[in-house]
Amino acid sequence: MAISNYAELQTEITDWMARNDVQGKATTFIQLAESRLNRLLEPVSTTATLTGTAGSPAIDISVLNMTEPDALWVTADKTERSMTPLVLGTFPTTDQADVPAFWAIEGNTIQFERPCADAYSFRFIFKGRLALSNAAPSNAFLKNHPDLYLAASIYWGSVYIQNAGLAVGFKSMWDEFLAEVQNEEAEKKRGMLTVDPMLTLLGRRCRSDL
């Protein structure tokens, strides 16, 4: 079974552990795994599906653990539309309810220029700490590294059932997978800092003209 979202991860944890006494505990194992991963990894890209409230110009996003917003789309009349991000206070507001077109972040809310005329569906992409939930059922880290997410979660499941041997095995896999991910991220950062060859050529030309 593929592991691409919160529900699938919970199912796999329960299936792999094959224990009746862990039913309903998978969410706790995931949360504990994310707690340590968040201390060791950079924020990741996450997609959340939000629902607006008719008559309200805002949506509460306090449960999303966001560090940086990226993009927002609204679906109205079965059509998804890209919304324009602006700084709060730089766009006019109105009390006339309709499909909002502009958005800004204020604290733990997304603010629109107008109230929603209906309970529109929104697709919000942001960078944040790992925090899978029903509201944010997937993130780029889970899609790219499901093995690490699974091993880290089952490790805590093994601690819960007090199976030291199982815990040691999954802790070993967790550490190995984590080291690979950290090395991969370090390589990406080094690649971003590589000097453009054209700049090197330009520097040589400038020196030859001296």
Score class of each variant (00 low, 15 high):
V99D: 05
G89V: 07
A152Y: 01
L72C: 06
E180R: 13
G24L: 04
L130K: 06
K171Q: 12
M192D: 06
F29C: 08
S172L: 02
K189D: 01
I161D: 09
A18Y: 08
Q111V: 10
L193Y: 07
W156M: 04
W16A: 12
A58R: 12
P57K: 11
R129K: 12
L148T: 01
G191Y: 09
D175Q: 09
L64H: 04
T14P: 05
K143C: 08
G157V: 04
I110R: 14
G165T: 03
A97S: 11
P92D: 11
Q96E: 03
T109A: 14
S138Y: 07
V195F: 02
P69F: 07
Y6F: 08
I125V: 14
R190F: 14
T14L: 06
E106N: 15
A48H: 05
V74S: 04
L202S: 13
M17I: 03
T84L: 15
E34D: 00
Q23T: 14
Q182L: 11
A54C: 09
I105Y: 05
A101L: 14
D209F: 10
L50F: 01
R114S: 09
S138A: 09
Y155A: 05
K127A: 06
I161R: 00
E34S: 04
P137S: 05
H145D: 05
D147A: 08
S56C: 00
S133D: 01
V99G: 05
T84F: 06
L178S: 00
W174F: 10
Q23M: 13
I125M: 09
I105F: 15
R114I: 03
A186L: 06
A26K: 01
M1T: 14
M173R: 13
V74N: 08
M83F: 13
A117T: 03
S153Y: 04
L210E: 08
K189N: 02
G169Q: 11
T200F: 04
Q31D: 11
S153T: 00
V44S: 14
F112T: 04
